[in-house]
Deep mutational scan, measured.
Amino acid sequence: SFNTVDEWLEAIKMGQYKESFANAGFTSFDVVSQMMMEDILRVGVTLAGHQKKILNSIQVMRAQMN
């Protein structure tokens, strides 16, 4: 498990989005775990492969939080 959203993004090789997530207010796992595709688009993730990777990881995160 990760301590910060930045660490999580690095771990899934999506570190290039750290600033975008932070600027959009997605700075805690409570918020990130609620993200939908529209949120991912809003933070500027436009590549389908990256969207899928982030969404898949969020689903895993949700499962671990319950």
Rank of each mutant, 00 (worst) to 15 (best):
M61V: 05
V45C: 04
F26R: 03
L41M: 13
K18E: 03
G44K: 03
A11L: 07
R62I: 12
G49F: 10
F2E: 05
L41P: 02
A63P: 06
L9S: 01
G44R: 03
R62H: 09
K53H: 15
W8V: 00
M61Q: 04
S33R: 11
R62F: 11
S20W: 05
D6F: 09
L47H: 15
R42Y: 12
V32H: 02
Q64W: 09
S20G: 15
A48N: 12
K13H: 15
Q16K: 07
V60I: 14
E10W: 04
Y17M: 02
I58W: 01
A22T: 09
Q16V: 11
G25C: 05
V43R: 01
G15R: 05
M14Y: 03
V32N: 00
K52I: 14
L47N: 15
K13W: 08
W8A: 01
E7Q: 10
Q51H: 04
I12A: 03
E10I: 08
W8T: 00
V45W: 02
V60L: 14
L9V: 02
G49K: 12
E10G: 07
N56C: 11
F26K: 05
E38M: 08
G15K: 05
R62V: 12
S57D: 09
Q34W: 05
T46V: 15
S20I: 08
M65F: 07
F21C: 02
I54Q: 00
I54D: 00
T46G: 05
G49L: 13
S20D: 14
I54S: 00
M14S: 02
T4W: 06
E10P: 01
A22P: 01
K18L: 05
M35K: 01
I54F: 05
V32L: 05
K53M: 14
Q34M: 11
Q64C: 09
Y17F: 04
R62A: 12
A22K: 14
M37V: 10
Q64G: 11
S20P: 08
R62N: 14
G49M: 14
A63V: 09
K53D: 10
V45Q: 01
S33P: 04
E10M: 08
A24W: 08
M14D: 01
E7I: 06
R62T: 08
N66S: 12
V5P: 04
V31K: 14
D6Y: 08
G44D: 03
V32C: 05
V60Q: 14
A63S: 13
L41T: 08
F21I: 02
M37D: 06
Q59V: 09
W8H: 00
Q34L: 11
A22L: 11
D39R: 01
Q16L: 06
L41A: 11
M35W: 03
G44I: 02
Y17W: 04
F26S: 03
L41F: 08
I54W: 01
T4V: 05
V31W: 06
F2H: 08
Q16E: 10
V32M: 03
G49N: 13
T4G: 08
I40F: 05
F29G: 03
E38G: 09
H50L: 03
K53V: 15
N23Q: 13
N66D: 14
Q64I: 09
G44P: 06
K13S: 14
E7L: 06
A11N: 11
R62G: 06
T4I: 04
A48P: 14
G15S: 11
F29S: 03
Q16M: 10
A11C: 09
A22D: 05
F26A: 06
Y17A: 00
N23K: 13
F26W: 08
L9P: 00
D6S: 13
I40T: 03
S33G: 06
T27M: 07
T46K: 10
E19W: 09
Q34C: 08
G44N: 04
K13E: 15
I40M: 07
G15Q: 08
K18G: 06
D30M: 11
S33F: 13
A48Y: 12
G49Y: 12
Q59G: 09
T27E: 05
E38T: 11
Q64E: 14
K13Q: 15
Q51A: 13
D39Q: 04
K52R: 11
G15P: 08
N66M: 06
I54P: 00
L41N: 06
W8F: 04
F2D: 05
S33Q: 08
H50P: 03
E10F: 07
M61T: 03
N66F: 03
S33Y: 09
A48G: 08
Q59W: 09
K53Q: 14
H50E: 06
A63C: 11
E10N: 08
Q64A: 12
S28L: 04
Q59Y: 12
Q59D: 10
F2W: 15
V45F: 01
S28Y: 05
D30V: 09
T46D: 07
I12Q: 05
I58S: 02
H50V: 02
S33L: 15
I54C: 02
A24D: 04
S33I: 14
M36C: 09
L41K: 12
F21R: 00
A11D: 13
L41R: 13
E38I: 09
N3Q: 14
R42K: 08
N56P: 01
M35V: 03
I58N: 00
K13T: 11
L47C: 10
M35F: 04
E7W: 04
L47V: 13
G49I: 15
M14N: 01
G15C: 05
Q64R: 04
Y17L: 03
I40V: 10
M35A: 03
M35T: 01
L55N: 05
D30N: 12
E19C: 07
V43S: 05
I58H: 00
E7K: 07
L47M: 12
G49Q: 11
S33N: 08
L55I: 09
M61F: 06
N3Y: 12
R42F: 11
M35G: 01
A24T: 06
A24E: 10
M35Q: 01
E19A: 14
K18W: 08
V32F: 02
T4D: 09
R42E: 09
S28V: 04
K13C: 11
N3G: 13
V31G: 06
L41G: 05
M65C: 08
G44T: 02
A24F: 12
M37G: 05
S1P: 15
S1E: 12
F26N: 03
D6V: 06
M61R: 03
G25V: 02
A48V: 13
N66W: 03
D39K: 02
Q51W: 04
Q34P: 04
M61P: 01
G25D: 04
M36R: 15
A63Q: 15
V31H: 09
A63D: 15
N3A: 15
Y17H: 05
Q51G: 05
F26Y: 15
K18F: 04
N3I: 13
V43H: 01
M36K: 15
F2G: 06
V31F: 08
T27N: 11
M65K: 04
A24C: 09
A63I: 09
M14K: 02
I40G: 00
T4Y: 06
A24P: 02
V5D: 01
E10Q: 07
A63W: 06
S1I: 14
L9Y: 02
Q59K: 13
V45E: 01
L55V: 05
